[in-house]
Amino acid sequence: MDISFQINGTLRSVDVDENTPLLWVVRDVIGLKGTKFGCGKAACGACTLHVDGEAVRSCSYAVKYAEGKNITTIEGLGDADNPHPVQQAWMEEVVPQCGYCQPGFMMATAAMLDKTPNPTDEDIDANIVNVCRCATYYRMRKAIHRAAELHTANAQNS
């Protein structure tokens, strides 16, 4: 079945079983590997991406729901020349260790900051519940607060 959606600003059409998890379409059909498989059960958050600006765990999201929607993955969040504030903060605080779970955390954080631009520690605890086995949480928290500063500054400048 043909399903069409925008992904990182590009219109894509894919011919796959409509119940295929979006994660596998993004990774194996479209070839964007930044969105990770961790559990396939919507439990770890490694596959988090944005659908119409909302954080979605793509391993548990049938691709049919993506029809006509706007998807953003870590590759579309920003790049080295134009990093998203979250990515900028992640680099400033040198957050990643193994790095595998980090795209999911950054996507969840970006979704949170869009709605909660100045999150408290309690907001962070309630919103960011992904799993990081290297346990980089201490630096992540610092990076999230830093990202909020950068995000606010960007909003004021634009």
Binding site: D28, L32, K33, T73, M91, V95, P96, P103
Partner: peptide, 27 residues
């Protein structure tokens, strides 16, 4: 010194075993 793999890990580069592909690959 900042980690040498920092940018790859922040921008989602396909660097992990699970990201590996080969031409004509099956599953």
């Amino acid at each position: 010194v900042a980690r040498v793999d920092l940018a790859d890990k922040v921008f989602g580069a396909p660097i992990f075993g699970m990201d590996a592909t080969m031409p004509d690959m099956l599953y």
